[in-house]
């Protein structure tokens, strides 16, 4: 395993931001899911070596991610919000990042920079100062620098937020390519991004590790609990909304889907769940456990 975390936890004065968890991640794209405040950013920053853990440690190829001497130039990190100095162009930034990685020859730095610029579709704007970049372009520049910096581990937090659909698809492809040789950890609220490209998924809730496994395994949480049925508009108006996932108008009435232990309607039938339904099932189970 390239990246391992043993009892990795972070506690502040106000309480645990992330309760001790153990993870083992190999090469490939790993999704990180969880509601706001679940501890995703804390986990990412702990794994990127940008936060000192209260318990345990994260190891990359056997040495701590905070071991600057060994892992200083192995980890790429793209935070949720990114800012660059506006007077530099994308090329200047990336050339500098390449130089810091130890690429001493100008030719090699230029080649690497051109490659990542191409990958994130920034080549045409590469020589324009960043002050004229849109939010999406800055995000892509961030991805490019993280790609350049990450030889072993790439951590990206909400990389697709603010990107148009075309760029999102392009970025997924870039991350998938990067994951061929690295551990890529992708945190997002867009489950479609994970479903489309991740082999494994980690789910956090209220600072706890709720799930770590395949996407199919996550879907499995909604197995035998996902119901679908068609109902009239009048009946739908008087229906309880607990567990209702979706309600879509059809030619004859309204098509409903719901998560429930029991059949929500005499006409409801068990159906094949999606990953999103599996995630929601997991979260609702966790919430009810916490309430109990």
């Amino acid at each position: 395993m390239m990246l391992t975390a043993h009892s990795l936890g972070k506690q502040y004065k106000t309480g645990w931001a992330l309760r001790p968890l153990t993870l083992e991640l190999g090469t490939g794209l790993h999704g990180l899911l969880g509601p706001n405040g679940a501890g995703k950013s804390t986990l990412l920053r702990l794994l990127a070596g940008m936060l000192a853990p209260t318990t345990g440690d994260a190891l990359l190829r056997g040495s701590s991610v905070r071991d600057f001497r060994r892992n200083g130039s192995r980890i790429g990190y793209l935070p949720q919000n990114m800012r660059v100095l506006p007077q530099f162009t994308a090329r200047q930034w990336l050339m500098h990042a390449a130089a810091l990685q130890g690429k001493s020859s100008l030719k090699e730095r230029t080649r690497l920079t051109d490659d990542v610029l191409e990958q994130v579709n920034l080549r045409d704007e590469a020589d324009v100062p960043a002050r004229s970049y849109s939010f999406g372009m800055i995000k892509r520049l961030g991805v490019a620098q993280a790609l350049l910096s990450a030889s072993d581990l790439l951590i990206v937090d909400e990389p697709t937020a603010g990107l148009d659909p075309e760029e999102r698809i392009r970025l997924r492809r870039v991350l998938a390519e990067a994951a061929a040789t690295r551990v890529v950890l992708l945190s997002t609220h867009v489950l479609g991004d994970i479903g489309a490209s991740c082999r494994e998924v980690i789910v956090l809730g209220r600072g706890r590790l709720l799930y770590h496994g395949s996407t199919q395994g996550l879907t499995g949480f909604a197995e035998d609990r996902t119901w679908a049925w068609e109902t009239s508009e009048n009946e739908w108006r008087h229906m309880p909304l607990d567990g209702l996932l979706s309600a879509r108008k059809s030619e004859e009435g309204i098509l409903c889907r719901a998560l429930s232990e029991r059949s929500p309607s005499p006409f409801a039938q068990l159906v094949e769940p999606t990953m999103e339904e599996g995630y929601l099932a997991l979260m609702s189970r966790h919430d009810s456990e916490v309430l109990l």
């Binding site: 070596g49 790429g76 990190y77 793209l78 990042a97 810091l100 993280a146 910096s149």
Partner: peptide
């Protein structure tokens, strides 16, 4: 700057 923490991942101590 809160939005520039990525700089800390550059290989500079």
């Amino acid at each position: 700057h809160p939005s520039a923490e990525w700089l800390f991942r550059l290989p500079v101590s």
